[in-house]
């Protein structure tokens, strides 16, 4: 019994984290058809910005500790906006006519560059900014104890998921964006400013990535290489759910999160294969992912 609800809660916490990590990736792919390899770097830049700002705040001493959450969010937004605009305006906007696969390689180059840039800016010493994590205390369910921060992460992730969905489905801007997703050329012909849409989408995507990093930072030790670890994970979630679909990312995160939780509790030996196993299985049955669109074959 304990194991059962442990599986559920652990699975939910992990799934919500996976969704946070994958949301930005799927938004960018959905609109721009760019499979962004550098997404992990945005995650790690967010984590570093959040951790260093909050670390600096607590080193100062006197401020009220709860302000640190605001700082965490602020750091993520600032970092995401800055790096998103820099990359989109400085590089990607000149590349949109290139092949989808070539875009993967361009973002791979970006990943290499940003990994080292992060290292040069923040150093290689791990950042250990635990305050926001331990501040919220813990809750006990029966014999299990959970950190409230992790539980709060579920709420944040639901909020972000809902916000994305609402913007896409219930606002005018969202509807225009969906038109761009459906058919870029027709949208341009109808007078949609696709350039602006692309820039906005990319910045939103990087900010979501940075946000995921900043929110994860207090629970981990932020060190070089965390971004690279995240990429494949986020890819798996997004591919399982169907590239470019928010609903898909939610379902993919839940599927991967819960399966992994089951594996850890019941068969820890196979944990390493879970993610790739789920991904291969889903792709074998539904090549376009669970929520992916079937593309018509064009002659």
């Amino acid at each position: 019994m304990t194991t059962l609800y442990a599986i559920l809660i652990d699975g939910m916490i992990y799934a919500s984290w996976l969704f946070l990590v994958a949301a930005g990736l799927t938004v960018i792919y959905g609109v721009m058809r760019i499979l962004n390899m550098a997404h992990g770097s945005f995650y790690s830049i967010g984590a570093y910005s959040g951790a260093s700002l909050v670390g600096w705040y607590f080193a100062g001493g006197d401020g009220a500790p709860y302000w640190s959450y605001l700082l965490l969010l602020g750091a993520a937004l600032a970092a995401g906006l800055f790096i998103g605009l820099l990359v989109e305006q400085g590089l990607l906007q000149f590349m949109y006519k290139r092949d989808e696969i070539l875009m993967v390689i361009i973002t791979y180059a970006l990943l290499l560059i940003l990994e080292d840039a992060t290292k040069l800016i923040f150093g290689v010493d791990p950042y250990f900014t635990y305050q926001p994590y331990s501040l919220l205390g813990r809750s006990s369910f029966g014999e299990l104890t959970f950190a409230n921060y992790d539980l709060a992460l579920i709420a944040v992730s639901v909020l972000i998921g809902a916000a994305c969905w609402l913007v896409l489905n219930r606002t005018n801007r969202g509807k225009v964006l969906r038109a761009v997703i459906q058919d870029r050329e027709i949208a341009v012909a109808m007078g949609v400013n696709v350039k602006l849409m692309f820039a906005a989408t990319f910045v939103v995507g990087t900010t979501l990535g940075a946000l995921a990093g900043a929110l994860t930072a207090p629970a981990i030790s932020v060190s070089p290489g965390i971004g690279v670890e995240v990429i494949v994970l986020a890819f798996a979630v997004v591919v399982v759910g169907g590239l470019g679909s928010i609903e898909g990312a939610i379902v993919g995160a839940l599927l991967v999160g819960l399966t992994r939780s089951v594996a850890v509790h019941l068969a820890p030996q196979i944990e390493l294969f879970v993610i790739y196993g789920v991904m291969s299985l889903v792709l074998a049955v539904r090549p376009q992912g669970l929520f992916g669109r079937n593309l018509a074959r064009k002659i």
Partner: peptide, 20 residues
């Protein structure tokens, strides 16, 4: 030794931009 990946990244970008 601390930033060789960055050099590789720039080389790759340069090739894609100038020599597609």
């Amino acid at each position: 030794p601390h930033s060789w990946q960055m050099i590789l990244g720039f080389v790759l970008l340069a090739i894609i931009i100038f020599l597609p």
